[in-house]
Design a protein around this nucleic acid. Structure first.
Lengths: 176, 176
DNA sequence: TTTACACCCGACCGGTCGGTCGTTTTTATA
DNA sequence: TATAAAAACGACCGACCGGTCGGGTGTAAA
């Protein structure tokens, strides 16, 4: 059943989120899934190949079922921002950011996946803003994402979520 | 000579910046300094103890010799922002952020050092803003730092420095 | 010249890493 | 129920990890 495969990916996401790419242990991942390490390698050829799967799932979960921006782009935007805010607040860190900092030229496929993830997310955000006639939507999308992710440093260091909330609030104000 | 000790700390900063806490190798650090691994342990008891030194040095370099904010707080603010911007652009990543994501409860001293680093930097920024009569200086300082650090994700993923430049520019506009 | 000390290093420790292999167990099909 | 594929596993690999130890080595004070 695909259940196991999906569980590997979702648990891998948490391992990467908590420990980054280098710090993520296949042994740790296996025990979280309830398998032995060797069993993981029947599904994935290596650790690096987990990264694209993790980010693809994350992107999909982030944008799936969003209200149609052609109907009400403000609602779409605010829903998207709210989802990101909620995830970051609950999980404390951004997987994408931890991976972006962790992957190097030694893991080119993972590197490409991280790049794709952020590009796709920014493009999705820019699309919505474009429908709202917001000027320079790519820049606004990139800056909004930067603000939200940067706010997680305060969560991890001091548990302070107010910068994240202010970031989300000011992002939502773009659509007013 | 203190030269060796300082070189260890400055090189450790680059190792942490590039590889994070877990990924940083004492072997790697030693070879960058031009020593053998065992020699590092005559200066530092363990890897964790490098973190406070690295962050203390970074904080000191960031704020030392800043123009007196009592004379011209705008100049002080913009100089500080400019320094952070320059470092992030040159080095591509923020050591503090990589360490913030990398240290866990297993390394409490490192964790505390990271917390202190960001708190001190934010407080320094807030002090300047306070002299300028900026409302809610702590929040503004935290948000400014978040925006600058978040912008590094675009540098690492795609080499795009424009989000960082926009962040710095908008930060400088606070003091106008 | 002796002594003492800071420093450096080669060799080594136990442990964990990502990954492999041969075999056993489960599962789907027929 | 027979069979073949898929999945899980225990044991193992070489490499590297953070860290230790005992023995040099250069230097400076006595």
């Amino acid at each position: 059943m695909k259940t196991t495969l999906r569980k590997i990916v979702t648990e891998a996401r948490e391992v990467f989120r908590e420990h980054g790419y280098d710090g993520a242990s296949m042994q740790d991942l296996a025990s979280r899934v309830g398998l032995k390490k060797a069993s993981l390698y029947t599904r994935f050829p290596n650790k690096e190949s987990l990264v694209p799967e993790v980010l693809a799932l994350t992107l999909e979960e982030t944008v799936q079922g969003l209200p149609d921006p052609n109907d009400d782009w403000q609602l779409t935007w605010q829903t998207l921002i709210g989802r990101i805010e909620k995830t970051l607040e609950e999980r404390q860190r951004c997987v994408g950011l931890h991976l972006a900092y962790g992957v190097t030229s030694a893991t080119p496929e993972a590197r490409a996946a991280v790049c794709q993830f952020f590009t796709a997310l920014r493009e999705k955000m820019a699309q919505i803003l474009r429908l709202g006639g917001i000027p320079d939507p790519d820049a606004v999308a990139a800056d909004t994402l930067a603000q939200l992710e940067g706010a997680t440093v305060w969560i991890t260091t001091s548990g302070d979520v107010t910068p994240l909330h202010r970031a989300a609030e000011s992002a939502c104000r773009i659509a007013d």
